[in-house]
Design a protein around this nucleic acid. Sequence first.
DNA 1: CGACCCCTTGAGGCTTCTCAAAATCCGTGG
DNA 2: CCACGGATTTTGAGAAGCCTCAAGGGGTCG
Lengths: 248, 248
Amino acid sequence: MGEIHPLPQRRAFRDIVSKAIDPCETCTARSLTICAPLSAEEQLRMASLTTVIPLKPRQVLFREGDEAEFVYNITCGSVSLSKSLADGRRQITGFLGAGDFMGLNTRTAYTVTAEALNDVRVCRFPRAEFRKLLSEMPSLEQRLLAVTETELATAHEQILLLGRKTAMERIASFLLRQSERARARGLAPNPVSLPMTRAEAADYLGLTIETVSRCFTKLRKQDVISLPSADRVMIRQPDRLRALAEAA
Amino acid sequence: MGEIHPLPQRRAFRDIVSKAIDPCETCTARSLTICAPLSAEEQLRMASLTTVIPLKPRQVLFREGDEAEFVYNITCGSVSLSKSLADGRRQITGFLGAGDFMGLNTRTAYTVTAEALNDVRVCRFPRAEFRKLLSEMPSLEQRLLAVTETELATAHEQILLLGRKTAMERIASFLLRQSERARARGLAPNPVSLPMTRAEAADYLGLTIETVSRCFTKLRKQDVISLPSADRVMIRQPDRLRALAEAA
DNA sequence: CGACCCCTTGAGGCTTCTCAAAATCCGTGG
DNA sequence: CCACGGATTTTGAGAAGCCTCAAGGGGTCG
């Protein structure tokens, strides 16, 4: 038994995990971070529960108010989370990337809408089984608590931005944050790449697309940034941008 | 041994817990909710780590950026969490009450400032020991995860409010939320009692005190609410208030 | 090559902020 | 019990920032 099991298990592990956790090569390292603290057996158990789902740009994974049947983990691509008012006004509450979880809330309904920004792959876990798994794997739960606390701190940062910063301060903060985020993920921090449209950036920053565009133009005219293309921002004067991020 | 231990333990438990978890009679039921899922032994362990600290109104418990030496649990009273910009602009990210935890973030520094709104008692836990305790008590960790996820959902709701709602919508949402919160805590939902000043409400809603006051006046003149005193709001027409909460 | 989508630019209006002052509340002390 | 002082709240007038509406560019894909 001791001799026979390891190999098949290892093989099954590779097969299933590679299908589940490692679907696209460019983001392997990223998606594994969430599973790094888990043992091989634990990773296998997680993998056996999961279904890989590919999403096209703008495809909606779930909507605010839908019954929360599944928990998702992003393995590749970017997703926006948003909430809307009855008349259509939309607020994007955050952007998630590889390694992030969605649908963890304890309620029975999703509290936000999740939509793919670009080509995305997610791992889907049936909710009940995921929770059961959690209670049996303290290391995963510990990790989720840490991740959720970080998300909460990020949300508080966004609350400060939306409640007290001017349009220009929001844009400057946003660019610096995106740059820092890229750096943390091991990507080039400059020029900043923006996977979202102006509309999405505006809905994230509590502004209109016109205001976002005007701020970009103003920064460009002051030579603080340059715009090689609409979705890439070159930060030419980081110090001035940092000063603008909280200068009334 | 089996005969001797139970009694002293029970006695020590009562002594320490009553000092730690149950300092003021009016909020006993509340503060126990967080410990309800724990066994007596676990409660005892938690209690043995804790120091009870009383706070006067407006007293600061910790500041954003301070080294996060302790984790706190509120047993009595209300606390505001806030972040500030260099020039003094302040944004309150949320209000906490009995049963809520503070300072759980994984970072080494607090990400917000905590300040007492009224007379408050908190239980203080040395950070390192609290984390060690957590890893040994999955039920507590599970509960913390659930609580943190709820806080995250609340933060997202606030992000929607700050990013997309008008001043009047913010005020209406705020009043309804405070009323609902009171109901959930077993208090009278109407009239709504506001433990915070206009300045604190404004800093929470991303407005100025003048705008908050003007909205209250307008609602009063339309007979949607009445103001028996500055810190009590009687909701006279709940339906109209609900309609105002997201009517452009 | 044209249509469509997204982004940019412009003009005017509205909501909210800023600055200023009056009114109200509340604890203190005569 | 009333007068007083300070803090908080309310009210007012004007200004500013951002939004709305509208039109003009630029890139991409069929």
